[in-house]
């Protein structure tokens, strides 16, 4: 191989050996093969790669929780305090003063059971949408599946949810003890698949928002009030039955409505609205798939603009 020099002003002559002169590389299935195509191309999700990095996801989740409660006296108790005080205020204004119906469930319990999944979703999306920008120092220095960063925000929100859920159980048994509601049955276990569905929806929205936020920092300012509007568009502080029959379909388009109503139905043994839950599953799935592919497409440009 010889050294070829070109003058700076001239077009440079080809220097590298012709492709044919080198043997093709042997490909084996055991070695990871990475082909990076130019940006803007649609790329496969490569779930295997994400699975390979699962430990990193756990660590990032742990870090998110640790950072959130750093230097706080009450620590993770905040995960309970936030929904608790929200419920107190809602109970006072909507339950007592406005006399909001609550499907025959004591209003505080009704509101808390709606707020829990909602707060999980809202936290996951809010934290998730800022997560990439906050991890700029990692993104510009090392390659790993970027999807794990917003996914860790969902993980951290899930931990908060689990802590707050224990209080729901306490409230629940206390009300049941006093005979205000029936004792919970085994159908309460259905909470688990519902939360998985909600986590997938939160991941989908979080992926989308975080990727957009890298390029358009407007998202950071838009998210808080989008979340607030979304909250009122979802039957959290009011029951879906309050909405007149002919407008019910508007609620059904909102994938959160079906999930949260189902969450309450499972908790309190109310009749399940299978149709709106089915719509939620379809809409959530569609959001997640589109968001995941869009994210993979956009992630190549993250390091340039972040």
């Amino acid at each position: 191989m010889s050294v070829v020099l070109g003058k700076q002003e001239e077009a440079l002559p080809p220097i590298l050996p012709a492709a044919e002169s080198l043997p093709a590389p042997k490909e084996t299935t055991t070695k990871p093969v990475t082909v990076i195509r130019p940006r803007n191309a649609w790329v496969p999700l490569d779930l295997w790669e994400i699975w390979r990095f699962r430990e990193l996801w756990l660590f990032l989740t742990w870090r998110d929780i640790k950072v959130r409660y750093r230097q706080t006296v009450l620590g993770v108790l905040w995960a309970v305090i936030q929904p608790l005080f929200a419920v107190l205020i809602f109970t006072l204004f909507f339950g007592r003063l406005a006399g909001m119906p609550s499907d025959g469930i004591p209003y505080p319990l009704f509101a808390y059971a709606g707020l829990l999944p909602w707060l999980f979703f809202a936290n996951a999306v809010t934290q998730g949408s800022n997560s990439l920008v906050n991890s700029a120092h990692l993104i510009t220095k090392v390659y790993f599946p970027r999807l794990l960063i917003p996914a860790s925000a969902v993980g951290a929100a899930a931990v908060d949810f689990c802590i707050a859920f224990t209080l729901l159980l306490v409230l629940y048994f206390w009300h049941a003890w006093r005979g205000l509601i029936a004792f919970p049955g085994l159908n309460m276990l259905l909470v688990v698949p519902l939360m998985v569905l909600l986590a997938l929806l939160a991941l989908g929205v979080g992926l989308w928002m975080s990727a957009l936020n890298v390029r358009y920092r407007d998202i950071r300012h838009a998210i808080p009030f989008l979340i607030q509007i979304w909250m009122f568009a979802t039957p959290i502080i009011y029951p879906a039955s309050l909405v007149p029959e002919r407008y019910r379909w508007i609620l059904a388009i909102n994938p959160l409505a079906g999930i949260i109503e189902a969450f309450r139905a499972v908790c309190f043994g109310l009749p399940m609205d299978w149709l709106s839950l089915a719509i939620s599953v379809v809409v959530s799935g569609a959001i997640l798939i589109v968001a995941a592919y869009g994210f993979r497409r956009m992630e190549k440009g993250f390091a340039d603009v972040i």
Binding site: P25, E27, K31, P32, V33, T34, V35, I36, R37, P38, R39, I139, T140, K141, V142, Y143, K300, G301, A303, D304
Partner: peptide, 16 residues
């Protein structure tokens, strides 16, 4: 390293 993707052309890596 995979941090930037090429604007044109291809990058192929076999191995970690």
């Amino acid at each position: 390293a995979g941090i930037y993707a090429p604007t044109r052309g291809t990058r192929r890596v076999v191995g970690r």
